[in-house]
Amino acid sequence: MKQLPVGLYQPGSSVIHRLDGSAKLLCLFILLAGVVHTASLPGYGIWAAFTVCLIRLAHIPPGTAFGSAARLKWFFGVILLMNLCFYGPEHPWMRWWIFCPSYEGLIQGIHVVARVFLLLVLSNVLMVSTAPLAMTDAMERLLSPLRLIGVPTDLAAMILSVAVQFIPTFFEETDNIRKAQTARGARFDSPKLWEKAKAVLPLLVPVFLAAFQRADELSLAMEARGYRTDRRVWKKKYPPYQAADWLALLLCAALAAAFIII
């Protein structure tokens, strides 16, 4: 697999792209809190307008921004129907068997769909405008206060950064193993349930062996150089927030606070 999957990230230089990853992640959480507390249709309208502004600011093509949410249209349909039919049994339009569609149900359904849709599109904007590595850093940074209550976040950060380095190597290795076994006649599939498990062993066993072999080599090398998990060697320095980062946080906080208070 010389073609590494790149996920959603699309390189760019917009204002949104340039914000600090952890600031963006914080903004997302703040915005999501606001969205969850929204309780009226005009409210969702404001959120939708805001989201569209964000997408324009980040220069994200609409297809990319809404694509993953649009693919869930059947799921949204089901949610809407379920809520419509079961939510408000007090004042239904009609009753038939277990179904009792009502106005309250319809509104509730629209709320749930709008909420999930906004959640998806907003997190999509973040993913599209932030490189995977920047995201990892951002998460480490946001989680680092947990150190104060005894969670070894620096160890976790070390583990995550090692994991990231292994990903491309493993892609290539797995692909080589798959090809080698295919050349030996492996089929990786079988109509019978028990045989299905056996059919993928020629792929899985070598992949795990190769991966653990690398883990063995790397941990030996780290121990030989004196790395110990109980000592903090991996403490990272994070760059301070810029004015734009603070501004974005403030804006999001104000918007979310408005919805939570109302």
Binding site: A180, A183, L201, P202, P206, L209
Partner: peptide
Amino acid sequence: FQFPEIQLF
């Protein structure tokens, strides 16, 4: 393949 030993399972 190169390093065929990885295909043992």
